[in-house]
Design a protein around this nucleic acid. Structure first.
Lengths: 209, 209
DNA sequence: ACTGTGCGATATGTATACATGTTGTGTTGA
DNA sequence: TCAACACAACATGTATACATATCGCACAGT
């Protein structure tokens, strides 16, 4: 592992560590320590931390120090609700706007997968395709942002239960059907329910911890 | 007016100038020149520029220099569409969740003001109250963000035509009625139409420029 | 005359030194 | 013994000096 050589690489490295949960919420991010760790001066480290703060992955703690962002149960609910509503919004828009070729691609993502492809991959590609299908770069950017911010908590439980995965697959197929039928309202409602179910289990797991 | 937190003051000053249109899209923001202008070193200026870039008010041009963000017609449409959809989403949620007291306050904002209050103020307070009424800090934050990003173009035409203001007032009252009736779908649809009308005129004005 | 290469200027990226503010601890007084 | 004040240590905020890359211009060669 070659040491990062620029502010952007420091940013990417820290973001990855936070998203993967290798840096727990509340963990201090002292500029001097990180600079020494990355073999750089404080300046690019500072720059990376400020960018992370702007993205909501990091916040200021006591002593104006940067710490990995902590979120209250309420804040988490708000984040997950926003994520679900925006995904639903995009699904509805995608049902109206996706081309036949794009819908065919969506179909291939869900059904064309052999046994070698795991659910997590299909899940990401399915949601990505719908985001693109909404044909609004601003909404896509917002969703990407919310996804990053929620990943640390969604990754807290790595292994989805098998029955939940089966249910999710069925929900994906139902959304695809609604999109194929150009039924925007149904696509949005199904996506809202899908996200609510998926994120609800995460919330429960976090609450019981 | 030199106070501590110089970087934040530079950020606020530049953001205000960009939002007010005093810095035109594409205008170069050289670090050295700004540092001299503010009587500071490049470090806090740099910090402010990076924060502005994270907020989408500034982008990188040739020579890696910062310039005031330019937006294509498509990007502007996407931004305005996202703004309208999120406002509609919040309006629907607010119709379900606002307390009676909050709705009464909304009523006072629209009807309780004398002729001395201008439309722009009422408009801002009305939309703010609805955003708060949705009771989701994340969505409120996203909307605040999109508002900032769109302000440079919304402010391009300072004076609303009188007939448009009257129409907007009527639309506000209709939304308030829907919220009072707890009709989320109607509130959302009315808000979507309201935003579409308000932003549509801006888009036309910019296109004909 | 046009094009390609090389050099120079200028702005950004990085490193380091200095200023400042906060916090924790130790000492002193009641 | 407890509380309050002062000092010291460490972290962030700012300034400055240095490194590096990119763009424009000029000159030379075809």
């Amino acid at each position: 592992m070659t040491a990062p050589r620029s502010a952007e690489q420091v940013h990417a490295a820290l973001a990855a560590q936070i998203v993967q949960g290798r840096l727990a919420p509340g963990a201090p991010l002292a500029e001097t320590a990180l600079a020494e760790q990355f073999g750089l001066s404080r300046t690019p480290v500072r720059e990376a931390l400020q960018k992370l703060a702007g993205e909501g992955l990091v916040e200021r703690g006591p002593r104006r120090a940067f710490v990995v962002r902590r979120m209250s149960a309420d804040a988490l609910r708000h984040l997950f609700e926003a994520l679900g509503e925006l995904e639903a919004l995009c699904a509805g828009m995608a049902a109206r706007r996706m081309s036949a070729a794009e819908i065919a691609m969506l179909n291939r993502i869900l059904h064309g997968d052999g046994p070698g492809v795991d659910y997590a991959d299909v899940n990401i590609r399915f949601h990505d395709a719908l985001r693109q299908g909404a044909q609004n770069q601003v909404l896509a950017g917002l969703l990407e942002d919310l996804n990053r911010r929620s990943l640390p908590w969604r990754n807290a439980q790595f292994t989805q239960r098998a029955e939940r995965i089966d249910t999710s697959r069925a929900e994906h197929r139902a959304i695809l059907e609604a999109v194929t039928a150009r039924d925007a309202d149904r696509a949005a409602a199904l996506m809202r329910a899908h996200m609510g179910a998926a994120l609800g289990t995460v919330l429960e797991l976090i609450a019981t911890r």
